[in-house]
Design a binder for these strands. Structure first.
Lengths: 251, 251
DNA sequence: CCGGTTATATTGTATATACATAATTGCAGG
DNA sequence: CCTGCAATTATGTATATACAATATAACCGG
């Protein structure tokens, strides 16, 4: 009695929402190859009459597909399946935290710390000007008491003056920065190198052993914050990534 | 005269659309650190009265932020800034095509080709069963007439029977598959290894030279399609990636 | 105090509608 | 034939509205 009679306007068999269904349907046309790159996706009008729903709903589906790079949309032109290269993007989780805190024993040791005016090379790495104040840190990270990774880091003291007084003997500069300093842009480079004598000694591996090197430059509002080189023995560290068409992970 | 009098309902100073403005504003609160992880984002109601717009508009902004992993939303709970680790994802462009066709001279050579019943190891790599029919290919890729990359590939003939009759002496199996076979899931692994004698010989580098190895497993609807190991001399190939908070690249 | 019902807050989905924008097509007038 | 305006098409953005789902809080009878 007290309950107000509710009219169910949309009858969903407890499945995905309509916009997601439409998105999936289109996605599967594309991923199955039925709609090759360049193929014209039906217009919003066609889709709304096909799926018997409002334009906003198909628009949501199409916008999502466009955002994920599966299709390209242009006014008056229509929507078109984009080239695979446009969507072959894979995502890699944060590199630093990765693998370390997987229930294993972790500790780090500060090997070097020096405050200095940027050399020409420092300036290049930070994309700043020589002479700017920088902090150089070298840390050795251990996992289960074995040397795991060697970190060479430059921090721009102009951008992060607080770093001058931070204690990096316990706290890794990476996680300190992550907490203290917001950043909005990062560039990574990943390559393989043979360990030099000093690197080999620090990591307890043979000279020439293949290492995976991750180099990262971080900036905020166009101002460089830090530049870091992480060197992992190649047999221990792997980067893994998995790619799924947009919907799978989100829904 | 003929022109119908048009009322401009929304006065936009030719700037970003409102939902993008709102998104940016919130994003900058988060990226600037003003709203730390766990901080509560104003509710849609608060935002719509603050920005004087409809709920759908703020919803679009918030949904986009949620999709990009900057915030987490829950019914009746509200929206909260997510931990940085949730958003430290970086994107890497397609690995195979990368760098190759950058205006340089490319050619490839088929070194080995064998059709066989899957060994135990083959089956493991393809996540299939021993005895299944597979095609093994080894290709050497040249850029500017220098050996550039060595590819070891397994293709499941059950999933791609057409591969049996394809001519891989000119066409790289990677691009052939990309065109012929839709795929929906891929897993990558990236590591560094010292070149073995045979690899070194093929690539024209010294034995033990550090190589970047990219391993990829591709599947469609849970059925394995191909497994490939790409081996690049470490000094020549680099993976690069750049991360921006969602909006920058799209808008 | 317990246990259930009811109210409420907040996001999720969907619709109908309107106007804006961009680019092409077509037509009219010189 | 060229110019320019108008119509057309398809997407882009925004509003107002309605109902759904979900979890907390408040209330209330026993």
């Amino acid at each position: 009695m007290a309950k107000t009679a509710r009219k169910t306007t949309t009858v969903r068999g407890d499945a995905l929402p309509r916009y997601a269904q439409i998105r999936r349907a289109l996605e599967s046309e594309i991923l199955s190859g039925a709609w090759p790159p360049g193929h014209r996706v039906p217009s919003e009008h066609e889709l709304l009459s096909r799926y018997r729903c409002s334009r906003m709903t198909v628009n949501k589906a199409l916008s999502a597909l466009a955002a994920s790079g599966m299709i390209v949309r242009r006014r008056r032109w229509g929507s078109f399946v984009s080239a695979p290269s446009g969507r072959n993007v894979l995502q890699i989780q944060d590199i630093e935290q990765d693998a370390l805190h997987a229930g294993r024993d972790y500790r780090m040791q500060l090997m070097q710390r020096s405050e200095r005016k940027a050399t020409k090379r420092d300036a290049e790495l930070l994309q700043g000007t020589p002479g700017m104040p920088v902090l150089f840190l070298q840390c050795l990270h251990y996992v289960d008491e074995r040397p795991w990774m060697l970190e060479d880091r430059l921090i721009s003291l102009a951008a992060v003056p607080a770093a001058r007084r931070a204690d990096f003997s316990k706290r890794s500069p990476g996680s300190w920065l992550l907490e203290k300093v917001p950043w909005s842009h990062a560039e990574h480079e990943i390559r393989a190198v043979n360990a030099s004598g000093t690197v080999a000694k620090a990591l307890g591996i043979a000279e020439g052993f293949a290492c995976l090197v991750v180099e990262r430059r971080t900036a905020h509002r166009g101002k460089a914050i830090t530049h870091v080189v992480l060197c992992y023995p190649g047999d221990r560290h792997k980067l893994t990534a998995s790619f799924d068409p947009s919907g799978a992970a989100e829904q």
